[in-house]
Design a protein around this nucleic acid. Structure first.
Lengths: 242, 242
DNA sequence: TTTGTGAACCAATTCGCGAATGGTTGCGAT
DNA sequence: ATCGCAACCATTCGCGAATTGGTTCACAAA
């Protein structure tokens, strides 16, 4: 899924063809374990529509970020896999949560600082929507997805493609399967309200174009995260500042 | 080649088998344009030695970092290609030199700061050797290799595997083929002495365990680089500090 | 005219299989 | 014991056929 794109969509697409509505509804039932949809030819005949009509519907779903397609490969639900995947898996095996927080503590406040200077009004509105999604999330897994989307949106708003790539690497390492149990143990009802308030403080600082405040708010947020998470891994919280 | 490893080697390996000496001598003449050596079986018969003796020699060369091997693929001279390659090429196509310096200006001083706290005496001695290699380099291409090795050694000394991975990505983007002509134009005899002096200042700060001075020296170095290079690309020098 | 349909073709990818290659083991000679 | 030789294992490559998304075209339907 791509939470960031979903919320950015208008809800008035029902005037589209019937194929789109049918496809959107059955999307989660059609794909296999790997998220792969049947080939376009099979899917078209299976749904009783022409291939061209099917492709128009798929174009909409792709623009919404619900699916991704690649010639010769197939059509898949979810987000297109990133080139950072292999590198992130390799790094995840050689680093540890303390190092990840040490890096985040230096990178993410800088991204927030730049976002305060460069974020558009759409960026800021989207950040607020994403923080609402975090607050209203029904379960921990979706909450993690929205939280990741918010941090990514801030990184995007910093307006530096290389910095965004660096952030993506860090984020993928953080979310590596090897540390899944740690993330599950870190889920903490009491801390949720704190996180949402800290997110709001970061967004407010960006909205008021205050780079120093944005960086400080982000630093405080990541420090809170590290204090809540690292002890669960039996690790010390690093003292170094940004 | 792996300049960092080469200089770290002791010179007393001549008591090894004759095959090793022969192989080490002819190494640069045996590989093809891609750095590939002949298959072990062919190479063994070609050198008139048994495959086992050849493999023992290759093990030494691999440990020295002069070659790398992979089952089913072959044996190659030089450094094993990094997983960061694909991602770096992709990022190089979406970023630009200004963004690269913006990121370096935030990442490398931090690495130098950490190196001041964590570098070993071997690290520091190696840094000085590498700066001498830069000074004594015969041509610009090898000078670039030694310079890269020095910056990498500083990143290694920071003692954070994830940060090292981030630095590797940035470095590979910086060295992307697409910007080769820019790097060539940036070669400047007059600036060489400045760079070597700035490197020495960084190493001195690390050696005296002064994190702030190390970070400041690195910041000054990268600012000098950006002032010398970015105008060649018709770009403004970014003002933001670390 | 406009739109949709089916078919054919293009381009990128995958799959299967044999060959090549580094990694490993075992046997026999020295 | 050590060395040389051979055989075998695991991974990768190369190539061709099949698969799959991307595109074009002619024709029919609205």
């Amino acid at each position: 899924m791509n939470p960031a794109e979903q919320t950015a969509l208008p809800e008035d697409r029902e005037n589209s063809s019937r194929a789109l509505a049918v496809l959107r509804e059955r999307l989660s039932a059609l794909h296999d374990a790997d998220g792969r949809l049947p080939p376009e030819r099979d899917l078209a005949t299976g749904l009783g529509i022409s291939r061209r009509a099917l492709r128009r519907a798929l174009e909409v779903l792709e623009a919404e970020g619900l699916i991704w397609r690649q010639q010769g490969k197939g059509t898949f639900v979810g987000n297109r896999p990133s080139l950072a995947g292999d590198l992130a898996r390799d790094l995840a095996g050689r680093t540890n949560p303390v190092e990840v927080f040490e890096v985040r503590l230096h990178v993410e406040p800088t991204l927030a600082r730049h976002a305060a200077l460069r974020a558009t009004q759409q960026d800021i509105a989207q950040m607020r929507r994403l923080n609402d999604r975090i607050r209203d999330a029904a379960d921990d897994d979706s909450r993690e997805l929205w939280d990741e989307a918010l941090h990514r949106r801030i990184a995007q708003s910093a307006g530096n493609a290389l910095f965004l790539g660096v952030h993506e690497i860090i984020d993928q390492v953080r979310r590596d399967e090897a540390w899944r149990s740690l993330r599950v143990r870190a889920r903490n009802d009491a801390a949720r309200a704190t996180y949402i308030a800290q997110h709001a403080a970061i967004i407010d600082a960006i909205a008021t174009r205050d780079p120093a405040a944005a960086a400080e708010a982000m630093t405080a947020h990541i420090r809170t995260l590290s204090h809540n998470i690292l002890p669960l891994a039996g690790m010390e919280v690093p003292l170094a500042g940004p």
